[in-house]
Every structure is written in structure tokens, then in C-alpha cells.
Amino acid sequence: MRAVDLFAGAGGFSTGAKQAGCTVVWAANHWRAAVDIHAANHPETAHACQDLQQADWRDVPAHDILLASPACQGHTSARGKEKPHHDAQRSTAWAVVSALEYHRPPVAVAENVIEFLNWALFPAWRHAMEALGYSLAPHIIDSADHGVPQHRRRAFIVCSRSKNPLQLRLAPRAHIGADKIINFGSGKWSDIERPGRSAATLARVAAGRARFGERFLMPYYGSGSGLTGRCLSRPLGTVTTVDRWAVVDGPRMRMLTAAENRDAMGFPETYQLPAQHRQAVHMLGNAVCPPVARDVIAAVLETV
């Protein structure tokens, strides 16, 4: 099966597609740094760096399955206050319709945050897809159910040129704890009790110690695990585009390394990342978890 990957980013969809037995023939993203990382990890794939809303789909190779992860920032509640540029981000989903109108592959899979399904224009987007002959089957999937050491709930919309929507049968895999990805011998540690440490951080550390002892995780947020800490035997919470998760080890603490974020997303250990930590975390936080993509695409291939 030949696949193309729109909004390819760090390459999680492409990596999962390859693991499911597909050949990714073309991938595109508007961000040059992301395209370069994707190309480094997928050298056999043709690449384009462009705004996909301006793409000429005649330049894209024929394919059997289209994979797409339009911008999610305009949909997610994590974005904070609504801003004018969120309209532009939400509109990237129409590039999927445009690509499918030209190529009409048998199957497409679109991934986004769950809030995408509540987008004011989602009914119109769905109607446009159906007008092209596609039946849509949204699936809400938690990455932790697919062997990824992270809870990450996302919508995977399976679009098929079939009379009825494809309802996938996805067998759950055993959960993996965050302790499997933490390397206590790496990273830049600092003393918890140091001048300038915020009172909120110290309170989170104290709450975590009371529940879990000397080793645990905590996010830099003030709700949920941000108030209580998180046991290392559980999957990590959602990886975001900025440093979120800190690991506490006795009197010291640090943020997760880029490699640990990579492992929390389910990328192979050999997967190349940007040298700059902030850039690596940003790409990973925007990515699709490869094991989830693998399982979804494999289930699609078994069904069509």
C-alpha cells in the first residue's frame, strides 16, 4: 500500500504506516525544520515544504491511503484564550478535502484532538467528505491502550470509499508505566530546595512525596496530577509541545529529556531528533504516536 502523509511533522504517522507495511511515497509540512527531520528519518520518501492549503495536488504521487494531521491548536482547550490565528489553524482541515477531491484514494485517516469533532464547521467538513464518496468513522483512541507509555486521547477519523463506515476492531495492549522511559542517570538535575524555587513547585513536590515516596512525576500545571504528583508505574500524562513533565528523585528534580519524550511518544530509540531541546519537544508534542498509527492502519488494511 502506498501512503502520503499531510502535515507530516515529526513523522509519527509515517513511522506507524511503515510499521504496518505501507510505503510512504510523499510527505509534506509547512515548517522546514520538521520537513528536514522527517526526511532524515524517512529518506526514501519524497518531501515538500509548503502551505498545504496552496498545494497543487497534481504534484503528489498516486496513493492508496492518505494520512493527515491538520493543525490542532485552534481546536484544543489547551490553547488558552481564543485568538485570531486560530481560525487559520482550524481551516487547515480543508486541505484534506482538497487532496481527496483530486486523488480519491480508497481510504484516508485524519488525526486530531477530540475537540475537532465539536468544531463549528465539522458538520460541513464531514458533508464535504461524504460528497466525495467517503463514509466517516470517528474513533477515540488512547495511546496507552496501544503500548505507548503515555495517556493521549485523540480522534482518528477513518474515511473510506465504502457504503458503510469502517468500524475498526482494535485489541487493547497492556499499559506501560512511565518508569520504563525514565533514565535517572541522564538529564540536568537541580536541587529542589534552592533559592528562587517557587512555592507552588515545592507544594507539588510535598504532595507527591506524601503519596508516592521519593521518586515520582509531576506536571507543571495546577490541576489533576499537578496537585498530587503521578506514580511512575502509570503511563505518563499527555506530552505537549513545551516541557511539561518533571521527574523527582529524592532531593533533586529535572524536566524530561528529549529522548524520554521521544520514548513516551512511542518513537523508535534510533529516531533522529533536532539538536535543540525545545524544538525536539515541540515536534514530539505535535506528533502522532507511531504505535497507534501502526495499529489503526493495520486494522484498516485488514478491513478494506
Rank of each mutant, 00 (worst) to 15 (best):
M1N: 11
R2I: 11
F7P: 00
G9C: 05
Q19L: 14
W26E: 02
D36H: 09
I37R: 02
L52G: 04
Q53L: 15
Q54S: 15
V60M: 09
Q73P: 04
K81N: 09
P84T: 01
H85A: 06
A88W: 14
Q89A: 13
T92S: 06
V96R: 03
S98W: 03
A110L: 15
N112W: 03
V113K: 04
I114N: 01
L117E: 02
N118A: 15
N118Y: 08
M129G: 00
E130T: 13
Y134H: 04
A137H: 06
A137T: 03
I140W: 05
I140E: 10
Q150S: 11
Q150P: 08
R152N: 08
R153K: 15
R153P: 10
I157R: 01
I157F: 07
S160M: 10
S162D: 13
N164G: 13
L166T: 07
Q167V: 15
R169N: 14
H175F: 14
G177V: 05
D179W: 09
I181Y: 02
I181K: 04
N183H: 13
G185L: 10
W189Q: 11
S190E: 11
S190D: 09
I192Y: 02
E193T: 11
E193V: 12
G196E: 02
L202Y: 05
A207I: 05
R215F: 14
L217M: 09
Y220S: 15
T240F: 10
D243H: 05
P251C: 14
A258M: 06
M265C: 13
P268E: 09
V281T: 03
R294I: 07
I297S: 02
T303G: 01
